[in-house]
Nucleic acid binder design. Structure first.
Length: 843
RNA sequence: GCCCGGGUGGACAAACUGGCAAAGUCGGCGGACUUAAAAUCCGCAGCUCGAACGAGCUUACGGGUUCGACUCCCGUCCCGGGCACCA
């Protein structure tokens, strides 16, 4: 009788032990099409097409959730992403595919280091402890992971190959060093990527106001790939809004590069403009405060002090102030001029903080007649404003209706171009510039190169040494990994913590053998996580990052799943690295993730869960109390998984009750003697069988579109019918219905699904093919015909599925409540939707 | 300001392709079982009027297209996320 009670504590460990002992979810590489020597496969540089020509058919599938950052214990967001991914993995397996579903940890990073600074505990110790907790919980959730491929990015066996990849990029000219104005967090004493600075100019992590510093840094040339990163979005099955975000981030704009010459200094200054058609309206020239030439231009002149003051003020100004559009335009004249190449006019040079060093060339031609910012600046400094395109005055413009941002014919420009529509003039002017050698058509991107240097301890060491004789020298491959040394003090005191490890830093030059010092910066952890999906394919390989045959077998990832917060950075970096490695002949695909699903956040009481709010729901506590199947089903049932969802304890209890109902009904059937089909032919038996087939059809469709919430609801309906028809339906039909329910629920509640399925059939559900609904069981002989008059529902009558349009019209006209609304009126139109409704239009 | 989402009963939601608005779940109410409670099972339920048959209203708001709109188009408001002087 105790069997009648649903007890996840008994069921779940049993199956977890089976899956662990039998290594159920491990898949071996088959080494299809392996290049026997393990040599690199050369592939062309083709872009979008290349992905179509990749491996295999539907025989295998690579299902991957974004790897977790191991900090403390897993949270509800982890429960959600792995519940989604596991459901997909199980579904693919039961469609007959070999599924790769691995797990790893993005284990380098700031929180562990900050923890170390505070407590002195080595980051490795706290990270390993956290990983152990993730492992335990993932097993207790019953996630179907191939543990043989487990990896952690902080292990030398992994980061050795991160370093190897860096060397490949360095060799190919895709990694380079440059001094650049970088964002500096005075509290963390470290450089921040632009993306780590909030809109208010504060450090994303600690909130301190960000400053600017000049440092020599390593960059990766992601901008070389801007065009392909943009174009290849067309070849992947990603949510449209994620693609849009990526497109906007890349920020392609077409225009021209035009050279303005400073005769005094004999220097040419190129500018990028999207509006070469307005060149004749350029009345001044502005440089960004960070522009390296600004101070040179004024050196030794009477402008020098004023410019110096302005530049240092602008550079140290917080991002918040500087990025405020409402702020009045400020700037300082440089006391020199440049020549406008189209009309020979000498126009004054300024420095102003509204011009950005990171975009274009760090200098602009200013056209106050046709650009709002230039207009505001010209008004503030009394500079001439010239109209060169005719058009109606703009709202909010000055007395002359300027700035005018619309289109129209050119005026006051040049005989050759006046009168041309500005779009034609644009092309004509660019062509002329080109022929004169003063400019050319050009494309500019908002995307910037990827700064990967971090003055941090807990990261992957950059495998480079600096030799007095030879300069920066790559560490030879045979000397990898460059292992992270242990140190005493993790706090970055204006230099990398690694600089303190003197024994480690001092080394010899691999080229000349002379004294050399190691690079003490570590890599951005986004580098670690930009290739882990490749490593999974051949995780145990210790003679190479991977065997190309392994990548051939599994890449690209068929379904990638993760939070939308990674829509830009992580996904862009991973795409970039994939393309770069493909160009280097290391892999065959151009895109790492064929399909992407982004899941929404889980909130509690409408707010993001956080310790400070005290609204954190712990997965471990939930699993302990209700079992993993309840937790997993509830997180999927709560709503569409791509949307944010609010956690409710009561809602979860409802799901738990549902699983208990399924359990009890199944145990009842299991205890019955198996009998013949004497009682299965009754109408209720047939009804239940039909419902089961309906559920198969519904759940299958819902799984294909990630609608786990409605899939689970469909199984609930099936169980409700099992319960309702418990007395009337025959044992065979009930057995079929409950077996089906267990089978359909297995991807969401694997333990319960396996247990019930086994008790009812003696078989292992994951070895059974996904059920297929029988067509004839989905078809109904009759249905309720909806009868509308003027689009309003007036009646419902039973109709035969075979009935033709005329018959249906007749049925509708004859329906009692229809007649009440039609009598005395004229039917002007009859709309028939067979299988659904008839609409009579009356007057 | 720009870009991307979203707004449906008391709550979470469903309606996938323009065809019965509200499946399923929570909460609520009523009943069965019980000495009682819990658990479990059965039933009711958008709002208004009505004893009932039914009628009217209802998917943020205002228009439009259509025989028919939660769904498509135009405009407005509100909420969430991202970006922000990008030349």
């Amino acid at each position: 009788m105790s069997e009648r009670r649903y007890d996840p504590k008994k069921i779940e460990p049993r199956w977890q032990a089976v899956w662990a002992d039998e290594r159920t979810w491990e898949v071996a590489n088959e080494g299809l099409g392996a290049d026997a020597d393990g040599h690199v496969l050369r592939v062309g540089l083709g872009s979008a097409e290349a992905n179509g020509a990749d491996r295999r058919d539907d025989a295998s599938s690579y299902v991957l959730e974004m790897l977790p950052y191991p900090s403390g214990e897993p949270h509800i967001g982890h429960l959600k992403v792995y519940s989604v991914g596991d459901a997909i993995a199980h579904y693919h397996r039961r469609l007959g595919r070999r599924v790769l579903h691995p797990m790893g940890y993005d284990s380098f990073g700031l929180p562990a280091e900050n923890h170390a600074i505070k407590t002195g505990v080595h980051p490795r110790v706290s990270t390993d402890a956290s990983i152990a907790s993730f492992q335990t919980q993932f097993r207790s959730w019953g996630i179907s992971i191939d543990w043989s491929r487990e990896l952690a990015t902080h292990e030398p066996s992994y980061y050795r190959w991160t370093q190897w990849i860096f060397l490949q990029l360095l060799d190919a000219g895709l990694a380079y060093r440059k001094e650049a104005a970088v964002k500096w967090c005075p509290k963390d004493q470290t450089v921040l990527a632009n993306e780590q600075v909030t809109a208010e100019g504060a450090c994303e992590r600690c909130g301190a106001t960000v400053e600017v510093r000049q440092l020599e840094q390593w960059f990766l040339r992601i901008t070389d790939y801007a065009e392909r990163l943009l174009n290849d979005l067309a070849s992947i099955d990603w949510p449209e809004h994620v693609k849009t975000m990526q497109r906007n981030w890349i920020g392609r704009s077409e225009g021209a590069e035009v050279t303005f010459r400073c005769e005094d200094l004999g220097i040419d200054y190129p500018v990028f403009t999207t509006r070469p058609d307005t060149l004749f309206g350029a009345t001044f020239f502005v440089m960004a405060p960070e522009h390296p030439d600004v101070l040179r231009i004024v050196a030794g002149t009477d402008r020098e002090q004023e410019v110096r003051d302005y530049v240092s003020r602008a550079i140290t100004e917080s991002g918040e102030e500087r990025s405020n559009v409402e702020k009045p335009k400020t700037g300082v004249a440089l006391g020199r001029t440049v020549v406008n190449p189209v009309n020979g006019l000498e126009i004054p040079m300024y420095v102003a903080d509204y011009v950005l060093m990171e975009y274009g060339t760090g200098a602009i031609m200013a056209v106050p007649g046709h650009d709002a910012r230039d207009h505001a600046f010209a008004r503030a400094y009394g500079l001439p404003i010239k109209r060169v395109i005719e058009g109606a005055p703009e709202d909010g413009g000055d007395d002359n209706g300027l700035p005018y941002l619309g289109e129209g014919p050119l005026i006051d420009s040049d005989d050759r171009f006046d009168g041309l529509h500005n779009r034609e003039a644009l092309a004509a002017i660019v062509a002329w510039l080109q022929s004169e050698g003063k400019g050319h058509a050009s494309v500019n991107y908002r995307l910037r190169d990827w700064l990967i240097s971090r003055q941090r301890y807990w990261g992957c060491p950059i495998p480079v040494v600096y030799c007095e004789q030879c300069g920066a020298v790559a560490v030879p491959e045979r000397d990898l990994p460059v292992e992270l040394p242990d140190i005493e003090d993790y706090a970055p005191q204006g230099r990398s913590p690694l600089a303190a490890a003197e024994d480690w830093v001092n080394t010899s030059c691999p080229e000349c053998g002379g004294p050399a010092r190691r690079e003490t910066d570590t890599m951005d952890t986004f580098v670690d996580s930009s290739w882990y999906f490749l490593r999974y394919c051949d995780a145990a390989n210790d003679s190479a990052a991977w065997d190309p045959a392994a990548l051939h077998e599994w890449m690209p990832v068929d379904q990638y799943i993760g939070g939308v917060e990674h829509a830009i950075l992580h996904l862009m970096y991973a795409r970039f690295l994939t393309k770069a490695l493909a160009d280097l002949g290391q892999l065959e695909v151009q895109e790492p993730f064929r399909a992407l699903f982004t899941q929404g956040m889980v909130t509690k009481d409408g707010a993001k869960m956080s310790k400070s709010r005290g609204n954190v729901v712990s997965p471990a506590a939930i699993v302990e109390r209700y079992g993993a199947d309840t937790a997993r089903c509830y997180i999927l049932f709560i709503g569409p998984p791509d949307q944010d969802a609010d956690w409710s304890d009561e809602g979860m209890e409802g799901v738990h009750r549902f699983l208990g109902r399924l359990w009890r009904l199944a145990m009842e059937v299991a205890e019955e003697e198996e009998e013949g089909d004497a009682t299965t032919s009754g109408p209720e038996s047939l009804e239940l069988l039909r419902k089961a087939h309906w559920a198969i059809d519904k759940v299958s469709g819902d799984l294909r579109r990630f609608a786990f919430n409605t899939a689970i609801a469909a199984v609930m309906e099936l169980i409700n019918d099992c319960s309702r028809l418990r007395e009337q339906a025959g044992p065979d039909s009930r057995r079929f219905a409950l077996t089906t329910a267990a089978s359909l629920l297995f991807p969401f509640a694997p333990h319960l699904g396996a247990e019930v399925y086994e008790r009812l059939t003696g078989l292992r559900v994951w070895e059974q093919p996904w059920p297929v609904a029988e067509e004839e069981m989905l078809e109904q002989d009759t249905y309720e015909l909806v009868c509308q008059v003027n689009g309003k529902l007036r009646d419902r009558v039973p109709a035969s599925s075979q009935a033709g349009p005329d018959e249906l019209k007749e049925l509708c006209r004859a329906a009692p409540n229809v007649r009440a609304h039609v009598d005395g009126k004229q039917i002007v139109k009859e709309i028939v939707v067979p299988g659904k409704l008839v609409n009579l239009v009356v007057r």
